[in-house]
Design a protein around this nucleic acid. Sequence first.
DNA 1: GAGTTTCATTGGTCATACCCAAACTAACAG
DNA 2: CTGTTAGTTTGGGTATGACCAATGAAACTC
Lengths: 257, 257
Amino acid sequence: MAESKDVDTQSIRRPVQLTPMQVPKASDVLADDLRERILRGDFPEGTALPPERELVAQTRMSRTTVREALRILEVQGLVQIRTGRAGGAFVQTPGEESIASSVSLMIRGRQIRMDALLETREAIEPACAKLAAQYRTSADVERLELANDAIAGAGPLSEFLTANVEWHVAVAVASHNDLLNGFMLALSRAIYESTDNKGFIDDTVRKTTVKAHKSITDAIRNQDPAAAVRRMQRHVHSYAEAVLEVDERTAIQVTEH
Amino acid sequence: MAESKDVDTQSIRRPVQLTPMQVPKASDVLADDLRERILRGDFPEGTALPPERELVAQTRMSRTTVREALRILEVQGLVQIRTGRAGGAFVQTPGEESIASSVSLMIRGRQIRMDALLETREAIEPACAKLAAQYRTSADVERLELANDAIAGAGPLSEFLTANVEWHVAVAVASHNDLLNGFMLALSRAIYESTDNKGFIDDTVRKTTVKAHKSITDAIRNQDPAAAVRRMQRHVHSYAEAVLEVDERTAIQVTEH
DNA sequence: GAGTTTCATTGGTCATACCCAAACTAACAG
DNA sequence: CTGTTAGTTTGGGTATGACCAATGAAACTC
């Protein structure tokens, strides 16, 4: 007896050494699993995941947990949740939208300055123009022209600005590179939102813009990447300079007060 | 009676015209509100939001709803949730990480091809190099050199690859543009993940890489943007060509089988 | 005063009940 | 027979209340 007790004590006192383990949340585990399956293509786009109560039965988790997991996937843009009969969580592919929203969160959260935004645009958009010149379809060119026409015929400032964004987005689309496209969408929106209260856009600026766009569109139509890059670079750069100049003037005015 | 009934019928039959309204989810409303306050700076970074039960009392929503809202903010990188006493939802600023993760979701979800990734990198990274040459601090240069030393002294392939990523990330950091930095981080990771199984990296490639990095680092140290752009362009482009060439060979092999 | 134990606080999970939205179905009026 | 209306069913949304788990703070012991 005493002997066996000693053995017991030893075996209890020297158990297997355990590392301080991590206990992930149940909802995260479920979300990770579902995400993996979705990305692997187990559920084709548009199909509905099992209803919540069904998932509860299958996973033996509570409905709260299941719902949290689905909510996570929804925020990440992997599913879209609809209510009502024949509702549920429908699989979708995360796209530009989700990138754009996270970019815009970072911009606001970090209070990224306008000049950084413009800098980034000067980096990305010429590349878009180059690729657009390489890969554009005739439909792309048409869209560019339509967008530029809309700019030329725009009335109030807000109309001009949205039409302007549309043209720049069209360039990105014509690059046929989803990633760049996503970046540009995010950027354009951010710049747009930070721009609308600055009133430096007069008729001259508008005309110059339309002209620049036209020449860039030409380069893209003619599949001339070099020209497209060069012209886009000039266009975006001069815009940036104009904005920053106004910014400075405003800052001085505020300072002088 | 009959008369009044007629009137009633009329007044019931022609009620005020209502537009088909939208009923947002309670948790979204809360999340939106909290997000707005956070972004506006009402809660400085690091401060804790009220405990869940406290929020329940204040908002008169159920705890389920409150928790869902907090979870949304967590996924968006706006708060970090810790358990235990003195735990809670702590405000933080969403950064590169959140962008990187959403980019990587899009890349996997849309099955973006390697050549698109490389294309994008060719677009962005030269711009990073340019800005790095303009704004680099001496600490940045030091980090670049350290990273390149690590590449030169790397043993197994995986070590080489991670060190390589580190150098490229260091360039982005040296640009002192958070946005570009975020993009590059996302890109580097995605390219890294898609690269590690391709075994085209031999000793020659490694030496070439180190040499190219050194010359780019020099340009950045000397604050020579033009040279930095040019060299980075060459470096990234030749890398892309190498990868795609191997890709093609592999594809042919697979086809021939 | 240092180390240990206890405990209060706060998030995590579960079970249940009920409400609301949407789509289908059957009853009803003309 | 046809169109409208009133259920009915299926699914997500919200509310409660109870209990578990983690963790830091406070009380306590030596």
